[in-house]
Computed example of a mutant assay.
Amino acid sequence: MSIGELSQRSGASPRMLRYYEQQGLLNPVRGDNGYRRYCPDAVTTVAQIRGLLDAGLPTDAIRQILPCAHGSEPTIDPCPEILSALAHEKERLDERIRHLSTSRDTLDRYLIATHAALHRD
């Protein structure tokens, strides 16, 4: 199928599909005319990519995980390399959550102090 067809079937823009190709996540073949041709399974692959991106994974991790992903649901073969990559990404997200929580708590303290100062005057 063409990039336009894949875009319609997957809901991803042609620009995003080209980005996925640049990142090594999609591998279309080129026809004699130079146009990209995608296999029918590419719709499922795009769904997996989008799901993994929505989970906060970077494209480097997705490139590792994608060969073990099956179907449009988040189903991945339990090979040790993939489990390690997923655990690493979860740890990275946990650290970001801790940092964001600290930032939010700091902002809360400033808001409370500022609100209290306004009502003292």
Rank of each mutant, 00 (worst) to 15 (best):
D60V: 04
A61V: 03
I62G: 07
P78E: 13
L52Q: 05
I65L: 02
E73T: 03
A42N: 10
A69N: 06
L57C: 10
P67C: 07
I76T: 14
L57V: 00
Q64T: 12
T59F: 01
P40K: 00
D77P: 00
I65E: 08
Q64L: 07
L57D: 11
I76S: 06
P80A: 13
A61P: 01
D60E: 14
I65P: 01
V46T: 14
L66S: 01
I76L: 15
P67F: 04
H70K: 05
A55T: 00
S72F: 06
T44M: 07
C68F: 02
H70L: 07
D41H: 12
G56M: 07
H70F: 05
A42I: 04
L66M: 10
P58D: 15
R50T: 15
A55V: 00
A47N: 11
P78W: 07
P58A: 11
R63I: 08
A69V: 09
D77K: 03
P80Y: 02
D77V: 14
H70N: 09
S72L: 01
C79D: 11
P40V: 08
D41S: 14
P40Q: 03
L66P: 00
G71Q: 15
D54H: 14
I62Q: 12
P40R: 08
G56Y: 11
T45N: 01
L57G: 07
I76N: 06
I65Y: 06
E73S: 09
H70A: 15
R50K: 15
A42K: 12
D60M: 00
V46Q: 10
S72Q: 11
I65F: 08
T45L: 09
Q48F: 01
I62S: 09
I62E: 02
H70E: 14
P80I: 05
D60I: 01
A47V: 04
P67R: 01
C79F: 01
P74G: 00
I76G: 12
R50F: 08
T44W: 08
V43F: 07
R63K: 14
T45P: 09
L52T: 14
L53W: 06
A55S: 11
L57Q: 07
L57Y: 08
C68L: 05
A61L: 02
L52K: 05
D54P: 00
L66T: 01
I65W: 03
V43A: 15
P78K: 12
T45E: 14
C79G: 13
I62N: 06
A42V: 09
L53F: 11
T59P: 04
V46S: 12
L53D: 08
L66R: 04
T75S: 03
D54N: 10
A61T: 09
R63F: 07
T75P: 00
L52P: 02
S72E: 13
P40H: 03
L53T: 13
V43M: 03
Q64K: 06
P58K: 11
L57H: 09
D77S: 15
G71V: 04
D77M: 10
A61Q: 06
G51W: 12
H70I: 11
A42R: 05
P67L: 10
R63W: 04
D41I: 00
Q48M: 08
E73D: 09
T44A: 12
I62T: 01
T75R: 15
L57K: 02
A69E: 03
T59M: 05
G51V: 06
I65M: 05
T45R: 15
Q64A: 03
T45H: 10
G56Q: 00
L53N: 01
R50S: 09
Q48N: 04
E73K: 10
